[in-house]
């Protein structure tokens, strides 16, 4: 009896191997398209293009990796395109989490489902810091903000965007009701908004914040630019400012962004594993790591399994705020 089962298991296994072996022998094919969900020039564009050659190296060096911008629908178009490819590992995309999950969470028609995407691994992540203008800011530190009687003004991208949501969740948890000055097209635009005094403070990715740190030269001291007042982390602050962890808000440390690479749902396991292994090696390549550190975008590698788990966690975390998300998507003042 046991023998029979073993035989049949072996037979099924052999059949499975036979079925998958042509795919394995074929892969990697001549060309893999590394999609970019946004236009040329942004953070996703840069990191995808930088990563391409390393991925090629660890896929055996013969495959061509073509970086291709497919902007549209605030990132949705590329994800939709990826989801509809043949599941043969010919297309991969670096997703913007939680941004790409939003349509799924609020039940909007998206043409893809992040819960079904085959995840290959994480490349990078960023966490937030709250900044104000050193010369024009009304509030010197976070205590003043919390105690303030007047309304705090926050320049930010539109309702429903990642930065807006993180702000909404953060200030909600800290018991502050700010006024959002929406409409900035990117984080660098609203950072500029704070520098010139459009509003009081805002939320910024730590990496992109570093380029606004005050100049050391005296001549330019008139523009002291931005300074941090609160860091969203459970660890120690990089900038020596209070952290949300210290304020007892441990939950908030998930707020941020994760750049996770995925491929078309239903991709054969052999191909997926090969891609995931190569991706992990590429992201941990010392040269790539050194580059990330140099330009203030440190890598944060995660393997396929952990990345999949993370997507699940992010999904359930933000689902708690479903009403807030849906409302912010429709709400006008």
């Amino acid at each position: 009896m046991i023998g029979k089962i073993t035989t049949s298991v072996l037979a099924v296994g052999a059949a499975a191997m036979l079925a998958s072996s042509p795919a394995m022998a074929d892969y990697p094919r001549k060309k893999i398209t590394f999609l970019i969900a946004y236009g040329p020039g942004g953070g996703f564009d840069t990191i995808t293009r930088k990563l391409g050659p390393y991925l090629k190296k660890y896929l055996g060096g013969k495959v061509t990796i073509v970086a291709k911008n497919l902007p549209g629908g605030r990132g949705k178009k590329a994800a939709q395109f990826l989801a509809k490819r043949k599941a043969n590992g010919s297309h991969i995309l670096m997703f913007n989490m939680p941004g790409h999950a939003m349509p799924n969470i609020i039940g909007e028609k998206a043409g893809y489902d992040v819960r079904k995407i085959d995840w290959l691994g994480r490349v990078a992540q960023f966490r937030y810091v709250i900044v104000t203008s050193a010369s024009k800011g009304k509030y010197k530190n976070i205590q003043e903000v919390l105690k303030s009687k007047s309304q705090i003004k926050i320049p930010i991208t539109g309702p429903g965007t990642t930065g807006y949501l993180a702000s909404a969740i953060l200030w909600n948890a800290l018991g502050v009701q700010p006024k959002y000055i929406t409409g900035y097209k990117s984080s660098s635009r609203y950072a500029l908004g704070v520098i010139r005094g459009d509003g009081d403070l805002t939320i910024l990715a730590k990496g992109s914040f570093k380029k606004y740190i005050s100049s050391k030269k005296k001549k330019r001291a008139a523009f002291k630019d931005l300074k941090p007042i609160l860091e969203i982390t459970n660890g120690k602050s990089e900038f020596g400012v209070p952290t949300t962890g210290e304020m007892g808000q441990k939950d908030l440390s998930i707020l941020g962004g994760d750049r996770i690479v995925g491929t078309t749902p239903g991709t054969p396991k052999a191909i997926k594993d090969q891609l995931a292994t190569a991706l992990y090696k590429a992201v941990t390549d010392p040269e790539f790591v050194a580059w990330g550190n140099k330009v203030g975008r440190p890598v944060a590698p995660l393997n396929a399994k952990d990345a999949t788990k993370l997507v699940g966690e992010l999904f359930s975390y933000y689902t708690q705020y479903k009403d807030l998300l849906a409302a912010s998507n429709k709400k006008t003042r």
């Binding site: 605030r74 991208t157 539109g158 409409g183 709400k331």
Partner: peptide, 8 residues
């Protein structure tokens, strides 16, 4: 199209 102030 998309209006950045209200995300409508």
């Amino acid at each position: 199209g998309y209006y950045d102030v209200t995300s409508t």
